[in-house]
């Protein structure tokens, strides 16, 4: 269980999150929507203990992670895996080395075992052919796939975090990434791996998520499912999700 309780955070006196509270189960499929610079990614970074709030508490499985040391945070970070916007791949390494990174750092696998595991993951994500390419030789979609492979290499996370996973991709590639996200979260709750996807692309969010949180001016302006989203009377939010209505009308 993830609990945000009255979390407030400001960067250089600009309030990014203002008394944000919500809770989520690890098996949930959540999309956090909002405009650019609205604090969506900040929520993911807070959840992982990469930054800390100015006030408020963040509980992961009952433990307040805002008081933990860097060493103790690892235990809680292991529950998640994150795919950052544009992949955040190590550009001095090739695809194989990127995916093998965590295995080499924290497991005692032999090089043969690592190679077998990396191959298996890349095959599953349909990018085995790119194994020895440098990351700058990959397309945007392939970079996201490699990032997903890397995030799955070391452990089986309880929840995946996707930061703008489909931003900057053409519609077909974005659709492929959405399918992959769904595939990785197959199964019935509470046994499935849930995810939180941060995005401003409403149509992509509706392909994968079951719960939608809309952030506006650092506050949660909406939290509900797709039916509640369709019926919202918040004019600004309706404008934000307008493309969803357009798409449904076209159908």
């Amino acid at each position: 269980m993830i609990v945000f309780r009255d979390v407030t955070l400001a960067f250089n006196s600009k309030v990014v999150l203002d008394n944000v509270s919500f809770q989520a189960d690890f098996h949930e499929k959540i999309a956090i929507l909002g405009g650019s610079g609205g604090g969506k990614t900040t929520i993911l970074r807070l959840m992982l203990g990469l930054i800390f709030p100015d006030s408020g508490k963040i509980f992961i499985d009952g433990q307040d992670i805002t008081v933990l040391s860097e060493a103790r945070l690892r235990e809680y970070r292991m529950k998640f895996s994150i795919v950052f916007q544009e992949g955040a791949l190590f550009d001095s390494m090739n695809v194989y080395e990127n995916v093998a990174f965590c295995l080499r750092e924290y497991t005692k696998f032999t090089e043969e075992e690592i190679e077998q595991r990396v191959r298996e993951l890349l095959r599953r994500l349909n990018i085995e052919g790119a194994m020895y390419l440098m990351t700058n030789e990959l397309s945007g979609g392939m970079q996201r796939r490699v990032a997903i492979a890397r995030s799955l290499a070391e452990c089986k996370p309880k929840m995946m975090l996707y930061d703008e996973a489909t931003t900057g991709l053409d519609p077909l590639t974005a659709d492929n990434i959405c399918s992959l996200i769904n595939e990785l979260s197959q199964g019935e709750p509470p046994d499935r791996t849930g995810f939180i996807i941060v995005t401003h692309k409403v149509t992509d969010a509706t392909k994968v998520a079951e719960r939608y949180i809309y952030i506006r001016n650092g506050k949660i302006a909406f939290d509900g499912d797709i039916d509640q989203m369709r019926q919202t009377d918040d004019a600004e939010f309706r404008k934000f999700i307008n493309e969803l209505f357009v798409m449904e009308q076209c159908r």
Partner: peptide, 14 residues
Amino acid sequence: LGHQVDIMRVHGVN
């Protein structure tokens, strides 16, 4: 800026 350091921290690398 490319979040590569964040990735290290997430995966427990100092």
